[in-house]
Write a protein that binds this DNA or RNA. Structure first.
Lengths: 358, 358
DNA sequence: GCTTAGCACTCAGGGAAATGGAGTGCTAAA
DNA sequence: TTTAGCACTCCATTTCCCTGAGTGCTAAGC
């Protein structure tokens, strides 16, 4: 049996309606749609075929049909109409994003919140630094009273620092020497090349400040490691409870407890190699716990060598068209916002995002 | 009518039992308790009195009694037996905390998670810096290609930095002058005293680097502001769904959507002036949404002039004794962990927590 | 005077049975 | 090929009844 145009149209209508109502869809309801020119009996036949083809399911004999996972898949891939954002929607997304973005971790939280609000679903947001993690320059600032500040500068104007105290007396001149040595030997090195052997060599050349080298190297390595790490936030879990599919508390708990940073942590990885917006329908999902739900996600560019990702989790019956549209618009707007940096407070000074630490 | 010892004993037993079972407690059940020497009829009389006194409520005529808010209050304040942590519990809390604590925001997340696990309830954790926010020292590092790094050092060895770029050519010597001026004029000043007048004066003395002053001041002010800010995390919301009082999805959603950073943000403030462990029973709660639930929270010391707070949210029927005990132990252990800093990697170097930024 | 056995009464919760209605598949006519 | 018609299925809802836990009160017992 082949999938005629009419069958597709019927399927689309069913999915559309089911997305709206969350109730099994009957032949009458479809036949009653304004642009449906056939009687309910005809629709019934088509529905029987669609069921046989595996695109629809029937909860029980005397109920309507609901889309199967395959049905949703087809819908997402071929059938759904593009959802066009209203001016209001674009506006509210725009103004939401325009507020000054702070540190990346705050950003991630904020974006998760915004996306969750915009879609009325739980949202995930993640930012991961791309792995071009090397130190461009070392800087040692003598900080008085036997301590100094180690400053690491990385590509994309990222700066990291750490205050180090030592009982042993280090002269400011020793630090100068040490920083020269470090900059000569250890810049532009990826994590893997910072070997014990290198450590020894640097220590030997460092003279009086030699004992500091291991501390510095340690911190550097830790930073480079974290540098490739992912920052993520989840927000709005409770929105699921408003949906009829989660009226059952047990189901709700199961899904809610799996929507957290831990179980969702592999989503960003899934996204890394994907392009555009990705939809994972039910059983296609990565995590076992999500196999009754769907995930829609997309990437955006943060700049400074960082990658962002936003996504939502919802019932397989979710308004894919709308969610996809909103998510994409979000991603686009975010990418744009990062591409053109904020206006500086001072006309002739271009200043980066504030870098803050604890 | 006075609250005799026997009435108290009955009340305690009722609350204890209700906490365990979540079902209205009848006179028979209390009479059957091993250390209860009276018949159910006597208990019934006592229960009638306790109801008249406002400590108990009756869902309907033929049901048992449940504690009222006043009943819980009395229970928490006077009646409940201390819960003694088992060795296993203390052990698991200890090992959980012993893992190296990273940056404060990560710490907050981690603690929230641990507390949630330990109590099987949603947990809040917050850390706020005390408001002794002043800059101890300014440092300007020339970073080549028309940019420099501004480093602010604050009390408690906190260091903050920011990379600033400028098209106008600034010599390294100008930066030296500027930093001297800044250190002379702007150290140890609280936020309030950084006035426009000061800005002007500093700009005048700064010479060639004068135009940089506003940017620097701006950033400094922003940092000082954030410095007094609160970092908080909420974890384990879904645990509520396991409890019988939240079997009703609507109730569950109501409470769950109010357990987030926003609505709970005033809890740390409540805690600030309190001592020890605080229990907010039902209607005593700050937020309207929580008036059917209870909050237990306590403070701990992070050191470096920072204050921590942990708390849990749960049904009014929660095991106050156990939760209080666990929370207190957590707080104690955390305070201790921060009091004795980690061993340094290098015997003669004491290094601070890593300071990282994006 | 306190305690307790006894008893009539109340009422929520649960199961069984009855009802209604939405939806189906099939057949036969258009 | 489409559609009207019809018998059939079966879920969801409602209604009803019954059970049993729990109460308050009274009167007898210690």
């Amino acid at each position: 049996m082949e999938l005629t145009e009419r069958k597709k149209k019927v399927l689309r209508s069913i999915v559309d309606l089911y997305i709206r109502t969350a109730e099994p869809v009957g032949s009458k309801a479809i036949a009653a749609l304004p642009d449906m020119k056939y009687s309910s009996a005809t629709i019934r036949n088509e529905m029987a075929d669609l069921t046989a083809l595996g695109y629809l399911e029937q909860p029980h004999t005397s109920a309507g049909r609901i889309p199967s996972a395959a049905g949703y898949r087809l819908y997402v891939d071929e059938l759904m109409m593009d959802y066009r954002l209203s001016i209001d929607e674009t506006k509210s997304i725009n103004t939401a994003i325009e507020e000054k973005m702070q540190r990346v971790d705050k950003l991630v939280e904020k974006v998760a919140k915004l996306v969750s609000q915009a879609t009325n679903l739980p949202a995930i947001s993640a930012a991961s630094r791309s792995s071009d993690a090397v130190v461009k320059r070392f800087e040692l600032i003598y900080a008085g009273s036997g301590s100094f500040i180690l400053v690491l500068m990385m590509p994309g104007d990222q700066v990291v620092n750490k205050l180090i105290k030592l009982p042993l007396n280090v002269e400011e001149s020793d630090l100068k020497v040490l920083s020269a040595v470090l900059n000569a030997a250890m810049t532009d090195l990826p994590l893997e090349e910072m070997t014990a052997e290198l450590l020894e060599r640097v220590m030997r050349s460092a003279g009086a400040a030699g004992p500091l080298v291991p501390v510095i190297l340690d911190f550097t390595q830790e930073m480079l490691k974290n540098h490739g790490s992912t920052n993520m936030a989840v927000y709005g879990q409770s929105r699921l409870l408003g949906l009829p599919e989660y009226r059952d508390v047990d189901k709700a708990q199961k899904i809610l407890s799996s929507i957290d940073e831990d179980t969702l942590s592999n989503l960003p990885a899934v996204m890394r190699n994907a392009n555009g917006t990705k939809v994972l329908v039910g059983p296609e999902n990565v995590a076992q716990e999500l196999k009754d739900s769907s995930v829609v996600m997309t990437k955006f560019d943060i700049g400074e060598g960082m990658q962002g990702m936003i996504g939502v989790v919802g019932p397989t019956r979710m308004d894919y068209a709308q969610v996809t549209a909103r998510l994409s618009y979000f991603a686009e707007t975010l990418s744009k916002a990062f591409a053109k940096p904020e206006q500086p407070q001072l006309p002739e000074a271009i200043s980066e995002e504030p870098h803050k630490e604890a």
